[in-house]
Simulated scan of single mutants.
Amino acid sequence: MIIVLTLVLQILHAALILAAAPLAAGALDWLEARFAGRAGPPLLLPWASLVRLSRKTPIEREAGSPGLRYAPAAAFGATAAAAAMVPSFTLDMALFPLADILVIVSLLSVARVAEVLAALDAGAALPGLAAQQASAAAVPAEAALVVVVFALALMGGSFNLDLIIEQQAGLPTAAAAWVALAALLALAAADDARRDPPLDQHLTDTGLAIAQFAAWLRRLVWIDLIGALVFPAGLAASAAPLDWALGFAGWAARLVAGILALAGLRALLGSLPARRARELAGAAGLLALVAALLVLTGTRMA
């Protein structure tokens, strides 16, 4: 019975994040336009774009290896796997034993590497330049994310994301927790500044739809990850319908808060050039290092 319940929770979670990723992208673009004083695009425009692109006939390209054709699917698969492990409305889903925060970070890195390698393999100037810029931004960002993960594991006593959330009940009020939160927010802003993934400048058909979906899903991973650590209200493993309803309400509140925060950061920072995004990732790395040092110092003093 417990196994069936965890599978049901996992399937429901997967359906929710797949449906919410394009909707969150549309809401974010609409809010960004409203903050800038414009009317903004329709909320369902991402869904319409997916339908339109999926109906296009795939173009056979002479340049590039077969890996270029499957790179969007590989990036989407890795991102979807990471999203499936980050809880939305409940804990203890079927993938709970695999929900190691290092595994989640590694899957996001695999998705980024797949995009970069395929863009370099395309043999075109613009995708190659975008891949170079993405690689340069990924160096400080991935290092900072690993240090943040280390700090969170020290605070939670485990690398398992569910256990960190359960034992921490959200980030505590200690200085190290707030510094780690600032590092995560800086990393999310730096990742969101990458508006045009490398492959988007080379694909025009179903592959572009898959690549865009992967980017929207990656943004949702950041929102769910930060939201679950900061405000885990309703995240409880229970079969009671009332607890599920509270979990849905809590997840909706975290999703709205995350979209508002990202839209506010976009309005505040504007369109960041690649150099500024790397600097923001570097600042996140310094914050992550400070958080880890604060945790280690506090542990030693205790």
Score class of each variant (00 low, 15 high):
Arg300Lys: 03
Ala183Thr: 05
Ala14Thr: 15
Ala74Leu: 14
Ala36Asp: 11
Asn160Ser: 09
Leu23Glu: 09
Ala209Thr: 01
Leu126Met: 08
Gly234Glu: 03
Asp92His: 12
Leu199Asp: 01
Ala257Thr: 08
Leu269Asn: 10
Leu203Tyr: 11
Arg52Asp: 15
Pro42Gln: 14
Arg266Val: 11
Leu235Asp: 08
Pro87Cys: 06
Trp222His: 10
Glu115Pro: 03
Ala236Glu: 13
Ile2Ser: 11
Ala283His: 03
Ala177Cys: 06
Leu208Pro: 04
Thr297Ser: 06
Pro87Thr: 00
Ala122Asp: 13
Ala36Glu: 09
Leu28Trp: 07
Arg219Gln: 12
Phe96Gly: 08
Glu142Val: 06
Trp244Arg: 03
Phe89Glu: 10
Ala21Gly: 05
Arg69Ile: 15
Arg276Asn: 13
Ala118Tyr: 06
Ala153Met: 11
Leu117Val: 15
Asp205Ser: 10
Gly77Leu: 14
Gln201Asn: 06
Pro42Lys: 09
Ala291Ile: 00
Ser49Trp: 11
Ala274Pro: 07
Ala239Gly: 13
Thr204Gly: 00
Ala237Phe: 13
Ala119Phe: 10
Trp244Asn: 03
Arg38His: 15
Ala119Val: 02
Gly156Pro: 12
Ile165Ser: 11
Asp191Arg: 10
Ala245His: 07
Ala245Trp: 10
Ala239Phe: 07
Ala257Ile: 01
Leu242Ala: 15
Ala261Glu: 12
Ile17Ala: 09
Leu45Lys: 13
Arg34Cys: 03
Phe231Gly: 11
Asp224Phe: 08
Pro241Thr: 01
Arg218Trp: 02
Ala27Leu: 15
Ile259Gly: 09
Leu107Phe: 14
Ala214Leu: 03
Leu255Glu: 08
Gly37Pro: 14
Leu145Met: 04
Leu269Arg: 11
Leu220Trp: 03
Pro41Ser: 12
Pro197Glu: 01
Ile164His: 04
Ala261Gln: 12
Ala228Asn: 05
Leu45Arg: 12
Ala215Cys: 04
Met1Thr: 06
Leu260Thr: 08
Arg300Pro: 01
Val295Thr: 02
Phe159Ile: 02
Trp251Met: 15
Thr206Asn: 00
Leu98Glu: 07
Met155Pro: 05
Val139Cys: 02
Ala193Val: 00
Asp29Leu: 05
Leu294Ser: 09
Ala211Leu: 05
Gly270Met: 07
Leu129Ala: 13
Gln167Tyr: 14
Arg34Ala: 11
Phe248Lys: 01
Ala183Tyr: 05
Leu235Ser: 10
Leu117Thr: 07
Asp205Gly: 10
Gln132Trp: 10
Ala111Trp: 00
Val256Tyr: 02
Val8Gly: 15
Ile101Gly: 01
Gly170Phe: 10
Leu9Phe: 06
Asp196Val: 05
Gly258Gln: 00
Ile101Met: 10
Arg194Met: 06
